[in-house]
Write a protein that binds this DNA or RNA. Structure first.
Lengths: 133, 133
DNA sequence: CTAGGACTTGACGTTGACGTCAAGGGCAAG
DNA sequence: CTTGCCCTTGACGTCAACGTCAAGTCCTAG
């Protein structure tokens, strides 16, 4: 398949696909005239890349991660980074949860403006200081 | 308190605090010479702002949100945006969960490189197409 | 009184994941 | 052949939340 079809199937732009290739995240065959060709499996690969991006991982980590995922082989150096990133994801997920609850309170407030529905923890942020020495 | 002390207490830079003020997220008194002065409660306010930022909300939404939080009063127009943002946070949290699990598999793989520990769902991204028409 | 740290405004720099033109080549249908 | 859509590389633009000087002012300890 060519780049446009892959873009459709994976739900990203063609620009993004070229960017991924530029970053070493995605390979492609080329026709004689230079057009990119992809296997069917490329769509899954792109969705995986998107997932990792959305999780806040950068290109440089992902480009290291993908071969490890493919080979199912993780070295000790990568493990260090993984543990760090895992902790960051954990923290980010927690903040997301809190913010989500806060929005839920506001949404509830918009629908039932009567009683003091959620008296507490609407102003104060949750203490997220669990990582400092 | 002056801006440096608040920055310390809230765990952000002074530049960030000035930026928040510039965006209308944070108010301050001024001394005769023009230096900013803050109440003790400003630290909580800043942490709240940070939480909302970390949740992916932009300045423009937060500047609308803060008065609603203070007054505990949410209009119908804001409710629309809240529902949308809530859904986005939900989706993002889900992706974060998936990516976290994926990292966990890799971490597990690094520690127990023996058995085919996690045979499935290491390559393929989870279908996150639940929002398209 | 003075040294030096904290503060002010203003303005430009950074970063990442693309968006968006520009200028041209490729390819199937009519 | 030519219309029209897809593709190519290249290069500049964007956006947000700050970082980072620069040049000058303020305040406090000694």
């Amino acid at each position: 398949m060519r780049i446009g079809e892959l873009a459709d199937k994976a739900g990203v732009s063609t620009r993004a696909l070229r960017y991924y290739e530029e970053q070493g995240l995605l390979r492609s065959e080329r026709t004689a005239s230079g057009q990119r060709l992809y296997e069917e499996s490329a769509a899954d690969r792109v969705r995986l890349i998107q997932e990792l991006y959305t999780a806040g991982l950068g290109s440089r980590l992902i480009v290291t991660l993908l071969p490890a995922i493919d080979a199912r082989q993780v070295g000790p150096e990568l493990l260090i980074r993984l543990l760090d990133e895992r902790a960051q994801i954990e923290a980010k997920a927690a903040v997301l949860q809190d913010a989500g609850r806060r929005l839920d309170m506001l949404i509830h407030l918009a629908r039932y403006p009567d009683a003091e529905s959620c008296p507490t923890s609407l102003d104060q942020a949750v203490a997220q200081d669990s990582m400092s020495p």
